[in-house]
Design a protein around this nucleic acid. Structure first.
Lengths: 161, 161
DNA sequence: GCTAGTGTACTCGGATAGTGTCTGTCCGAGTGGGGTTGG
DNA sequence: CCAACCCCACTCGGACAGACACTATCCGAGTACACTAGC
């Protein structure tokens, strides 16, 4: 069970787009160059973020990607949810009802949720709560050096490439 | 990102083995029949739990599987960790250091951990903490009907099959 | 009666194959701005 | 000088292929108990 790598890419891109807000929109080519990521696949991930209302894309020769909202109002949870389709870490398949073990149970017993499922759900909620407690703006503030360097080097790259 | 189904199976098996403690060991054939699961693959999952010191297997005609410890001292976290190899939901690949974006950074900047990685780690810790707070015994107590029914029907099944 | 041998029901570990998701690439189609051409 | 046109860099969405983990099955080998055969 590993989270898809695209989540990391998406978060870095959101932070970078936040830093480069005044130079928005940023093209996928430059973003891919910036992080040395496969351009076509990264595009797919950003499209997923667009469908979730986190990013906007503008077509045309000066087009590219930008945040739809101020970074203070985009939680890490939203980004993760947009990039991980189902988002259910644990999916209860009601094993308890299958086979000889579940054959002679009353309906009442299965009416209440499986204890295992309940514990898993609690844990997932704790995980989500933590992710929802942090925003893209938090991540931007966390690395002021990165912000400065990104703005500086991005302009240099934009000039040459 | 979905947790492997074997985790659910493993937890149900641990709870069942806890309930059937006095009839231990329980053979893999009966466990697979009990939940209508593929016997050979379930065996592999239980072997993983044995490697983690959660279950013991005994060979021979009266052999089978049993818990190594009282259910009060087996946490859900342990079972999940044993069945999910890596267990790192999020794995930081240091995207920030790659490409043009990381080219001109000082070493000092990358010395401290990536903010994204830190947030993810916090969330994972919250998840693990919740899983570690519950034991197999908790799950056993949560469904007294299941306990009674399991003991009753298991004996019936053991008699016929 | 005791011992050795045999059979059975289990476990262990390796080998192999199907399936689904994640990763990655390619292509045709659409769009907006800028440069060019013609009046 | 102005307007119409064309080109370019960008986006969108679908199609497709490879890598990898998860799921599933099969097989040979080892082990403990029960039962049987022979002394």
């Amino acid at each position: 069970m590993r989270m898809s790598e695209g989540v990391e890419w998406g978060l870095h891109c959101c932070v970078t787009l936040g830093w480069l807000d005044e130079h928005a929109p940023v093209s996928i080519r430059r973003l891919a160059l910036w992080f040395d990521l496969p351009q076509e696949y990264l595009k797919k991930r950003l499209q997923a973020l667009a469908r979730a209302g986190i990013l906007t894309s503008s077509p045309g020769i000066r087009g590219g990607w930008s945040l739809t909202r101020p970074a203070e109002r985009i939680t890490v949870m939203e980004v993760v949810a947009a990039l991980e389709d189902g988002l259910d870490l644990f999916r209860c398949t009601e094993v308890r009802q299958r086979g000889a073990g579940g054959a002679n149970a009353t309906d009442a017993e299965f009416a209440e949720t499986c204890g295992i499922s309940a514990v898993m759900r609690r844990a997932e909620m704790a995980w989500r709560r933590e992710l929802a407690a942090h925003t893209i703006a938090d991540l931007m503030e966390r690395s002021p050096q990165g912000a400065e360097r990104t703005r500086r080097d991005y302009l240099r790259m934009a000039g040459s490439a």
